Structures are given as C-alpha cells and as structure tokens.
Simulated scan of single mutants.
Amino acid sequence: MIFIDYKNNPPSEELIEEGKELTQQLLALPEDKRKEFIEQNKSYWGKLKDHLASLSYGKCWYTEAHDIASVYHVDHFRPKNETKKLKKDCRIETDNNDEAYWWLAFAWENYRLSGNIPNTSKNAYFPLRKGSPIAKNMNDLDKEWIGLLDPTDETDVMLLTFGEDGRAYPACNDDSSWEAQRVSLSIRVYDLNSTTLVEARVEIQNQCKRRVNRILRLMQDKENNYNQLVKEEIKEQIRELRKMMYPSSELSAAAKHYILNRTEPFIKGILC
C-alpha cells in the first residue's frame, strides 16, 4: 500500500457534478427505493475507473499489485448497501454502522481502486473501533474511528510494513495499540496476506536481495576496484534497485521496506 493523493487529484468537474446530482436524487427517495436507484445508476462509478487507475500507475490501491490482483473494481470504501459485523477470523472486537453508507454511493471521495483479491475479501465489512461514533452524513465522517487503513491517508500507509517472509505486519511495536489493531483488521479484511500476494512480495524481495548481494560481491573484489566495467555494473544494479522503489513499480512498498532494512553503508546512497 502506498499513499494516493486523491483529494488533491479529483476527477473532472463534470463527473463530480454528476455525482452530486445523483446524490440529491438519492436523498429525496424513500428508504425502500434507494437500493434500486443505486443499482440503476451503478455505471456512474465505472466512469471514474480510468482516473483512479491513473493515480496509482494502474495498481490496486490496497495491494499495490497489477494483474496478480486480477480484475479491478471501484470499491466503495464505506459500503453503500450494507455493512457486515466482522467476526470470522478476527479476535478484535469492533462495531459497525448497521445502516451502511448509502448516502455515499455517488460520492467520488469514497471510491478506491481495488483488485479482485481485496475487493472480494472486503465485501461489506467496514469495522469501527468499539464505541466509535457512527457517521450519518458527510460532516461526521472524520469523527469515526475507522478500523481499516485508507490508502488516501498518508499516515495510515506508514502503519504497514512487510517481513522477509512476504507477509504484512504492523509497523509499530505495541501490538495492543489501536494503530496495530487497525493493521491487523486491514490485513484480515483486505486479505493482504493471501498466498498470491505473499509469494509475489517474496519474489520482489528476492530480486532486491540478489541485486544487493551482487553489489557487495563487486565492491569486495579489490582487484577490480578501479575497473570501469565493474563500476558501471554497480551503478546499473543501484539504478535497478531505485526503480523497484518507484511508486510506479509493482509492490514498491515491499521492495522499499526490504532495502531500507539492509544495513550495508551503500544503501544510503541508493536512497539519494
């Protein structure tokens, strides 16, 4: 997961206005007509898919994956039709909004680009911290203690790290903290430790490891320290490591965490 600066990169004004108009029509309907109206106008968020993809270099916002996350969906971060109580495979007690967030069905701010793995797993789950206020309108959203990491929140992205086993973990040391619990909830709900994603991260980290070790071998070869070809290969390996950390690269966060955790002195130079 990497930060998506969504709020500063909104869709076109035309699409925003269309969403506002649909929202006004939705708000005017009786409760028993809302789901039907949302279903009839579901093509709206499909119009935003290309824009969402452009902000993440075509990657899923939750997993940072391309085709390994399969088909892309426009996910409603806060579920539009229902919310399910999170119980299965989760020991963290949470609350949820029983009424769902139907009034956000056409709000562009609520859309996230999701691959098939996290979209299927997330379903209608949107856990809140036990005792959290429940938002009933746009003005109340910031009052909720949401249990899921949001890729559009720069501080949320910093809470997630990856081990050499390819699995996602909390970046903080206190496992009992709400921050660590949010990471655990996100791993569970987004299925961030699915076999497919874990194997892909391990492969990315192995690529990094091979390049770092190759640099070390070249640097330790004292006889060729001044060989121009050796210097050029070292530079090329460093360039490739930097590319793997680019936001446009698949699973760049996993690559960056691996590289940052290496202790060799030259690693600092790669980050320059």
Rank of each mutant, 00 (worst) to 15 (best):
A100S: 12
C272P: 02
E14T: 15
L159H: 00
E31A: 09
N96G: 05
K85R: 05
H73S: 08
K130M: 06
T152V: 05
K35E: 11
K136R: 15
P133L: 04
T195S: 14
C60M: 11
K130W: 07
T196Q: 09
D75H: 06
K47V: 14
A100W: 10
L86W: 08
V183F: 07
S186T: 14
A135H: 11
E223G: 06
L260I: 06
N41G: 05
A135S: 14
W45D: 07
A135D: 14
E93R: 13
F126E: 04
A253D: 06
K47Y: 08
D191G: 10
L104N: 09
Y125Q: 03
K256W: 04
R129H: 01
A28N: 11
E164F: 01
F77S: 02
L86H: 05
Q40N: 13
M244T: 15
L86Q: 05
Y190L: 11
N123C: 11
E154A: 03
R201Y: 02
N224I: 15
W102V: 08
P10N: 15
P265W: 00
K130A: 04
T152Y: 07
K88P: 02
S54D: 15
M245P: 01
Q205G: 02
N261P: 00
V74F: 06
H66Y: 07
N261L: 02
N110L: 00
D165Q: 01
S248R: 06
S194E: 13
N173W: 06
S249E: 12
A171V: 00
N9S: 09
L26S: 08
